[in-house]
C-alpha cells in the first residue's frame, strides 16, 4: 500500500494539473468568443462574393472561354489537398478528426489511381500525417492565427495555391477544415476550391425586377478578377471557422480534464483518509496490547 506521503504528493500533483486545465479552459473560452465574433464579422463579405459568383458563374459556365479556375484544366488526375489543422494540441479530437478525414480522402483518391499532394496548414496535422504520407507533403505553413487570423495570411496561402495551379502542378484542389457549429461540436468539411463550384443563384437576390445584371467591363474580365480573390476569401473563411472550432474543442477537452481531475482528487483523498485512519487504529492496537502485556 502506498505510504501517506506518496498519496499526499499525488493529490498535490493532480491539483496542480487541475489548475492548469481549468486555466486553459478559461483562456480557450475567451479566445473562442473572439474567434466567433471574427468569423461572424467576415460573413457578409463571403456571402456577397458568393452571390456575385453565383450570378456570374451560371452565365459563363459552359462557354469555351471560361477561366480554368472555374472550368478546371479539363483533367482531374492530380489533386492538391489543403489540410488545415491547429498548431497546438490539447484540443480533444480536433486535429485527429481532421487528419482522419484527410487520410480517408487520400486513400480514396489513390485507389482511383490519382496523384495526391498535400499542403499542410498547421503543425499538428503535418506531424501526424507525416508518418503515413510524408512523401506527399509539399509544404507546411505554420503560425497562422497565433493571435487572430488575418486576411493577409489567408491571402498568402491562396497566392501560393494559385501559383502552383498556374504552374500546372495540380488539377483539383480540396480544402479540409472544421466548420464551427457550436462550442462543443464542429463538422469536418472537404470543400472543393478549384475548379470553383458555382453556388446556386438564390431567388431572393434583391428584387432585380426580372432584370439581369449588366457587367462592366465584361463577365469574363470580372471573373478573372473575382475567382482568385474568391480563393483567398474561402481560405480565410475556412481558417476562421477552424480557429473557432479549435478553441471550442479545446474548451470542451479542458472542461472534461478539469472534471476528471476533480474526481481523481476525491478518490485519492478518500484513500488517503482511510490509510491514515488505518494507521491510527494500528498504533492504538499496538499501544493497548503493549499495556496489556505488562
Amino acid at each position: 500500500m502506498a505510504s501517506l506521503k506518496d498519496l499526499r504528493d499525488r493529490i498535490g500533483s493532480v491539483k496542480a494539473t487541475q489548475k492548469i486545465t481549468s486555466a486553459m479552459k478559461m483562456v480557450a473560452a475567451a479566445k473562442l468568443r473572439r474567434a466567433q465574433e471574427q468569423a461572424e464579422a467576415a460573413r457578409p463579405y463571403a456571402e456577397r462574393m458568393e452571390r456575385m459568383l453565383a450570378s456570374l458563374g451560371t452565365s459563363v459556365r459552359g462557354t469555351p472561354g471560361a477561366p480554368p479556375l472555374l472550368a478546371g484544366t479539363g483533367n482531374d488526375q492530380r489533386h492538391l489537398i489543403i489540410l488545415a489543422t491547429a498548431d497546438r494540441g490539447l484540443c480533444g479530437g480536433f486535429n485527429t478528426n481532421l487528419v482522419r478525414r484527410a487520410r480517408a480522402l487520400i486513400i480514396e483518391l489513390q485507389a482511383a489511381g490519382q496523384d495526391v499532394q498535400l499542403l499542410c496548414v498547421g503543425r499538428k496535422g503535418r506531424d501526424s500525417i507525416r508518418r503515413d504520407y510524408g512523401s506527399l507533403i509539399g509544404e507546411t505553413i505554420e503560425g497562422i492565427g497565433r493571435k487572430a487570423v488575418v486576411f493577409e495570411e489567408a491571402d498568402g496561402i491562396a497566392a501560393r495555391v494559385r501559383e502552383m495551379f498556374d504552374a500546372g502542378e495540380f488539377d483539383v484542389c480540396t480544402l479540409i477544415y472544421a466548420k464551427f457549429k457550436s462550442a462543443i461540436s464542429n463538422e469536418i468539411q472537404a470543400q472543393q476550391l478549384i475548379p470553383a463550384p458555382i453556388p446556386e443563384a438564390s431567388d431572393d437576390a434583391d428584387d432585380l425586377g426580372g432584370a439581369v445584371y449588366e457587367y462592366e467591363p465584361s463577365e469574363e474580365e470580372i471573373l478573372v478578377d473575382l475567382l482568385p480573390r474568391n480563393i483567398s476569401v474561402q481560405i480565410y473563411r475556412a481558417l476562421l471557422e477552424n480557429a473557432a472550432s479549435e478553441h471550442g474543442a479545446r474548451m470542451a477537452a479542458m472542461d472534461n480534464a478539469t472534471r476528471n481531475a476533480g474526481e481523481r482528487i476525491k478518490g485519492l483523498t478518500l484513500t488517503y483518509n482511510r490509510t491514515r485512519q488505518a494507521m491510527i487504529t494500528n498504533e492504538l492496537i499496538e499501544i493497548i496490547s503493549g499495556a496489556e502485556a505488562l
Binding site: 450570378s55 432584370a211 467591363p217
Partner: peptide
C-alpha cells in the same frame, strides 16, 4: 471608381456588376 470609369449610383440604378 469602376474598372471602366467612375459611375454614380442613385436609387433605381440598373443592376450592375463591376470591377
Amino acid at each position: 471608381p469602376g474598372g471602366d470609369g467612375d459611375f454614380g449610383v442613385l436609387a433605381g440604378h440598373a443592376p450592375l456588376l463591376s470591377t
